[in-house]
Computed example of a mutant assay.
Amino acid sequence: VVVRLKGAVEATVRRYSDPERLVVDLSLKKEASTPAKALPDPPRSRPPKPPKPVVLLDPGHGGVDPGMVGYVVEKEVVLDVALRLERLLEREGIEVRLTRDRDMHLSPDKREDLSRRAALADSSQVNLFISLHVNATPTRTAQGVEVFYFGRAQDARVLTQVIRENGGGELGKRLTQEARTVAERILFDIVAQANQRYSQRLAETLGRKLSQTTGSPFRGTFPGDFFVLRYAKVPAVLVEMGFGDHPAEGRRLADPTYREKVAQGLLSGILTFLANGAYAR
């Protein structure tokens, strides 16, 4: 990195770890020959308010894409939870943006739809990106909360789930391979590695708080080659809030009172993460 400056400067260099980063402070050199005239004290004013954190919520699927269909329809549940969570976050003074606020798709083409959602997360104007989903399994026996962050899927079960969320079938396999190519670059990118660690921390916080609030088991956090997360420059996760095809959990997800608990659990996780200062603007 080359920085060109006008005038003589003094540079102070410091290196930090966790995450690995280099900090360079630049300041103008003081002129020793002519003493500077004292400036009058500036008028007292209140310090500027810190900018509001901005959370981007992505209710998955929508429009022509219903997502999983079991005891609930995924696109309906995640939109309802997102709107509830938006209301709760705004009460806390947090700005909220949505990739969709009604039953709609960003594009009827799945690749284009996911790309547009991903592009919204690749922005300096947001602090967190949270994609909301409802889980499913062929056996219809699993229940609980899972949260994913971007990275290479480490086992076959997660890979199957990633392919399904990336569109399923041959399309899902192709988009997963595209995302995997991006995931492999993280190994050589210090900034991306730091963001991945923050995303993993966000995933862990959300998963535990969501489980505590709803009583649903916390099944863990996992890396996954999710197409919608591949370009995020901020902490970004994909939340599977429960299994919509499980006889008990699926029926709970159909209950508005339970959905409010889900929103409350996500709120608690977001506030805890932000309170730790683990985000950048």
Score class of each variant (00 low, 15 high):
L26Y: 13
L26I: 05
L26P: 01
S27K: 06
L28S: 07
K29Q: 14
K30Y: 13
A32K: 11
A32P: 13
P35W: 10
A36F: 11
A36R: 14
A36Y: 11
K37F: 12
K37D: 11
A38K: 13
L39Q: 12
L39P: 02
P40T: 02
P43H: 01
P43K: 05
S45E: 12
R46G: 01
P48H: 01
P48N: 00
K49N: 07
P50I: 02
P50E: 07
P51D: 04
K52W: 11
K52T: 14
K52M: 15
P53N: 12
V54A: 08
L57C: 12
L57R: 12
D58I: 14
D58Q: 12
G62I: 05
V64E: 03
P66C: 04
G67L: 01
M68Q: 08
M68Y: 06
Y71R: 05
V72P: 01
V72I: 13
V73M: 13
K75L: 08
K75E: 10
K75P: 01
E76M: 08
L79T: 12
V81L: 02
A82V: 09
L83R: 13
L83A: 12
L83C: 09
R84P: 01
R87E: 15
L88V: 05
L89F: 11
L89P: 06
R91S: 04
R91L: 08
R91P: 02
G93T: 08
G93A: 12
G93L: 08
I94T: 12
I94S: 10
E95S: 09
E95N: 05
E95D: 11
E95Q: 07
V96C: 09
V96Q: 13
R97L: 03
L98S: 08
T99I: 06
R100G: 11
R100C: 10
R100S: 08
D101H: 13
D101V: 05
R102W: 15
D103K: 03
H105C: 01
L106Y: 00
L106T: 00
L106M: 00
L106P: 00
S107H: 02
S107W: 04
S107C: 02
S107R: 03
D109S: 00
D109M: 00
D109I: 00
D113E: 04
L114C: 03
R116T: 01
A118K: 07
A119Y: 07
L120S: 09
A121S: 15
S123V: 07
S123D: 15
S124A: 07
S124Q: 10
S124C: 08
Q125A: 15
V126S: 09
V126L: 08
L128V: 09
F129R: 11
F129E: 05
F129M: 07
S131R: 07
H133V: 07
H133G: 09
H133A: 06
V134M: 04
V134Q: 07
N135K: 14
A136E: 03
A136K: 03
A136D: 02
T139I: 08
T139Q: 10
T141P: 03
Q143D: 06
Q143S: 13
G144C: 15
V145H: 05
V145A: 04
F148E: 11
F148D: 10
Y149A: 06
Q154K: 14
A156S: 06
L159T: 04
L159F: 04
L159H: 05
L159Q: 03
T160I: 00
T160G: 09
Q161N: 13
Q161E: 14
R164P: 01
E165R: 15
E165G: 14
N166G: 05
N166S: 04
G167Y: 05
G168W: 02
E170D: 15
